[in-house]
């Protein structure tokens, strides 16, 4: 089963150690065939809204930096437990903050 994990930005700027650990983690998970895709998100963003026939386009940012989703990872795991173990490791590397995870159908 596939899950999309979205993580919010953090107050503390990333340091050298985080970059190294994260690179190793991404490499390990890709090698194991678990991490299918990952990337960072520009906090600015564009909003497209529709109402009736009308389409409204607004440029961001819309929230504070730490509230915006800063990165995503699409993973393929056998079970919910594997997913949670994976996210535990991820959070341990990135430090304080939050991730949201949804199953992808």
């Amino acid at each position: 089963m596939r899950y999309l994990m979205m993580s919010k930005g953090s107050d503390t700027p990333p340091d050298e150690k985080l970059f190294t650990e994260m690179a190793a983690f991404i490499e390990e998970m890709s090698a194991a065939g678990i991490l299918l895709a990952t990337g960072g998100l520009d906090p600015v963003g564009i909003r497209v809204a529709s109402k009736g026939d009308e389409i409204t386009i607004t440029d961001g940012p819309f929230t504070e930096a730490k509230e915006a989703v800063a990165g995503f990872a699409l993973v393929e795991v056998r079970s919910r437990e594997e997913l949670l173990e994976l996210s535990r490791r991820f959070r341990r590397i990135v430090g304080d903050g939050e991730s949201f995870i949804h199953q992808v159908f």
Binding site: A32, R78, S79, E81, E82, L84, E85
Partner: peptide, 10 residues
């Protein structure tokens, strides 16, 4: 037990 199983599979 299920957590241990997930870790084991990794």
């Amino acid at each position: 037990a299920r957590t241990v199983d997930a870790v084991w599979k990794f």
